[in-house]
Nucleic acid binder design. Structure first.
Ligand SMILES: [Mg+2]
Length: 228
DNA sequence: GCGACAG
DNA sequence: ATCTTGTCGC
């Protein structure tokens, strides 16, 4: 539990205002809908930071529903923005796009480490990336960013809604494994809540994190050490 | 005005 | 996200 967060570099208020407006623009392009057909390939993506000035992003592609790994790629770039709650996409998405370009096998849908529409302006990194790539996406986050919920039962598979104060459904809180902290799953772009939840559950293999995100996180860490 | 705040 | 050993619970 991060009780205390050291104050990061001062965020330029003018830049924050501009990025926030960019999100409102991108938001108009988000489409929440069921996926046309069962995915053949599902990807997972995540980023790590070998140094405070370098971002390393990974994409892993798995065959669905067997989850055999088909491909994995990574790309590194200089960091251009500090972490600012609500603006994560502007820090990680640019490099994720470059990593995505390296894929020989393009996925039918992408599971992103972070939130989809469970965001103050409904533009979490999963929604943001989905719009820029125009590919179906959904987010799987380990922590809440916004919204309220009731703790789901401690047994694997328990689910409770993540909602806005006005009752709007932002996502679902899912217990992916007995007695471990739940995940926050929300659709990003060209995807809906039932699909995001269904695919998340279908990708569980005994760990807290579903395979796409778990493997992306694993390789983001491995490739980082490899640079040593 | 104060607290919260993905990765 | 990152640093970083042991330790507690299932
Ligand atoms: Mg991550």
């Amino acid at each position: 539990m991060a009780y205390y967060r050291p104050p990061g570099p001062p965020a330029d208020p003018i830049l924050v205002r501009d990025l926030t407006r960019q999100q409102d623009e991108l938001r108009t392009q988000v489409r929440l809908q069921p996926i046309p057909r069962e995915p053949q390939l599902i990807a997972g993506c995540d980023s790590s930071f070998p140094t405070p000035e370098t971002v390393l992003s990974v994409f892993v592609v798995l065959r669905f529903p067997t989850l055999e790994i088909v491909e994995k790629v990574y790309h590194t770039s200089p960091v251009t923005l500090p972490y600012i709650p609500g603006l994560l996409a502007f820090r990680e998405a640019p490099n994720l796009l470059l990593a995505y370009d390296k894929l020989q096998h393009k996925p039918d849908i992408i599971m992103v480490d972070g939130h989809g529409i469970a965001h103050p302006r409904r533009m979490g990194i999963a929604a943001h990336l989905g719009v820029l790539l125009d590919v179906p996406t959904f987010g799987v986050a380990k922590q809440r960013l916004t919204g309220t919920y009731q703790e789901p039962a401690v047994t694997k598979g328990s689910i409770t809604p993540l909602t806005e104060r006005n009752g709007e459904l932002l996502g679902e809180v899912i217990r992916s494994k007995d007695k471990v902290n739940p995940l926050f799953v929300s659709p990003g772009h060209r995807c809906d809540q039932p699909t995001a939840t269904r695919l998340t559950l279908a990708c569980l293999r005994g760990y807290k994190l579903p395979e796409p995100t778990r493997l992306a996180d694993h390789w983001a860490e491995e490739f980082k050490k490899e640079l040593w």
